[in-house]
Amino acid sequence: MVGTCPALRAAETEQVVVNRFSGLAIDGFDPVAYFTDAEPAKGAPDVEVSENGAIWRFRNEANRAAFVARPDIYGPQFGGYDPIDVARGKAVAGRAQLWLVSGGRLYLFSREESLAAFAANPANTLKLATSEWGTLRAMLADY
């Protein structure tokens, strides 16, 4: 579990991290805004879509359309789980405000140390995380 604050709790039995109380992915932040604005931006309740068992919110219709066309690009990689922990075979939810776009993909991190470790060597982390993700994802689907 990622903390004791209900807003930070994520369902750790999901392939995509969602807030267990609201069903929102990345706590209602617009996943496309990380690319277009280079910063997290809250999405609007009237501009949302359901995808992969999560509710995704967007700042505007253009961002929603971009996401619907390419959720594989705009959605956080590894379902929003911290790639450092995924590389270790663990599912620890990333936080919307600890993020990095690297290689044209969005990554969320559970703590600043993970962000720094990933930024220092993304290729190695991605190699390890990718090899673990299939098994981890299957385990998450079984819960």
Rank of each mutant, 00 (worst) to 15 (best):
A25E: 06
A25K: 07
I26E: 11
I26V: 15
G28I: 09
G28C: 12
F29S: 09
F29N: 12
F29G: 03
P31T: 13
P31Y: 08
A33P: 05
Y34G: 01
Y34T: 07
F35S: 06
F35G: 04
D37I: 04
E39N: 09
E39L: 11
P40K: 12
A41G: 05
A41T: 14
G43R: 02
A44Y: 05
A44S: 15
P45V: 05
D46I: 04
D46S: 13
V47A: 06
E51D: 11
E51P: 01
G53S: 09
G53T: 07
A54T: 03
I55K: 15
R57H: 08
R59W: 04
R59C: 06
R59M: 12
E61Q: 14
N63K: 07
R64K: 15
V68K: 14
V68I: 14
P71E: 11
P71H: 12
P76H: 09
Q77R: 14
F78S: 08
G80N: 09
Y81I: 07
Y81H: 13
D82S: 02
P83V: 03
P83G: 09
V86Q: 06
V86Y: 01
A87R: 03
K90C: 02
A91C: 11
A91W: 02
A93V: 02
G94T: 03
G94S: 08
R95D: 06
Q97A: 09
Q97G: 04
L98K: 09
L98I: 14
W99I: 00
V101K: 01
S102Y: 10
G103C: 10
G104M: 05
R105S: 13
L106E: 05
L108I: 04
E112K: 11
E113G: 10
E113M: 04
L115E: 04
A117I: 00
A120R: 08
A120E: 13
A120H: 04
N121K: 12
P122Y: 13
P122T: 06
N124V: 07
T125C: 08
T125V: 15
L126I: 11
K127Y: 09
K127Q: 14
L128F: 10
E132T: 06
E132K: 14
W133C: 10
T135H: 13
T135W: 05
R137F: 12
A138D: 13
